[in-house]
């Protein structure tokens, strides 16, 4: 589904991703872990098409299509979703209005009419229930004054609304309290199917107890230095990253 080959990316002439290889098949869950500053969010941004980062080598393709020339919004239309580590605020634009615009823009790109208001409402109702979001919350300005946890839950609400093919969750667990973590993880699990894939970026094993990964990768200094099954996450939790860093430098 998503294929990343020897991906190099830099910002302001500083190379951050230094040759990433990753294949994510439909139905799979991949976890990406790794120390601060190792390039996890950068990888997520590059997959989503952020132009700030220059891809100097390698490729990202979705269902066989090279994404190099594909604008971020078109990637979204094709089913790429990024739950941001730091969601931005858009004052004066309600969550509902934002979602309505996002959905209708995607539909427009596919040559479809706007979603009828009735269906939109139904969808909003259904997905807000899934994530146990109070609907009053949805008329607030997007992310403005949201608590850290609220922002993250709202990201997953958007994911639920948009039903992407590949969802990248960048530290969605950070900032969530124990109950919220369970709710959000359950939401993600419910959205998972054999036709889509999830990449979770996290620092903690805890999330992976809920969203169980098929593969765990460790990113260090712009490269995937180790891959394994879910037991790798437990090992990291126990031992930290030092042993991996050492292995990598050998």
């Amino acid at each position: 589904m998503l294929e990343i080959k020897d991906l190099h990316a830099s910002v302001e002439d500083k190379e951050i991703l230094k040759g990433i290889n990753l294949e994510v098949k439909a139905g799979e869950v991949h976890a990406i872990m790794g120390p601060n500053g190792s390039g996890k969010s950068t990888l997520a941004s590059v997959i989503a098409g952020k132009e700030e980062f220059e891809v100097t080598k390698g490729s990202v393709s979705l269902e066989g299509e090279d994404l190099e020339e594909v604008a971020p919004e078109e990637r979204a239309h094709k089913g790429v979703f990024l739950s941001f580590q730091y969601p931005v605020e858009i004052p004066g634009v309600s969550v509902t209005n934002f979602m309505k615009t996002a959905i209708n823009e995607s539909r427009k790109a596919k040559g479809l009419e706007d979603m009828p208001a009735k269906d939109m409402l139904k969808l909003i109702r259904e997905k807000s229930e899934l994530l146990e979001i109070d609907r009053k919350f949805l008329s607030r300005s997007l992310n403005e004054g949201f608590s850290g946890g609220e922002k993250k839950r709202n990201e997953i609400f958007q994911m639920a609304m948009l039903e992407p093919k590949v969802a990248i969750l960048d530290e969605t667990d950070s900032g969530l309290d124990i109950d919220a973590l369970r709710i959000v993880a359950n939401g993600v699990n419910k959205l998972k199917s054999k036709d889509n894939a999830v990449i979770v970026i996290t620092h903690y094993q805890r999330l992976l107890d809920y969203i169980v990964p098929d593969f765990v990768h460790v990113l260090h200094n712009g490269k995937i230095v180790k891959s394994g099954g879910k037991e790798l996450a437990m090992e990291l939790e126990e031992k930290g990253y030092d042993w991996i860093k050492q292995e990598a430098t050998v």
Binding site: G49, E52, A71, F84, I90, T101, A102, S106
Partner: peptide, 19 residues
């Protein structure tokens, strides 16, 4: 802000209008 909108499928022009 614009990238956030783009990522949700909203092109830059529309993103500006929204903001």
């Amino acid at each position: 802000q614009i990238f956030y909108c783009n990522q949700r499928g909203i092109d830059t022009e529309k993103a500006i209008a929204l903001i």
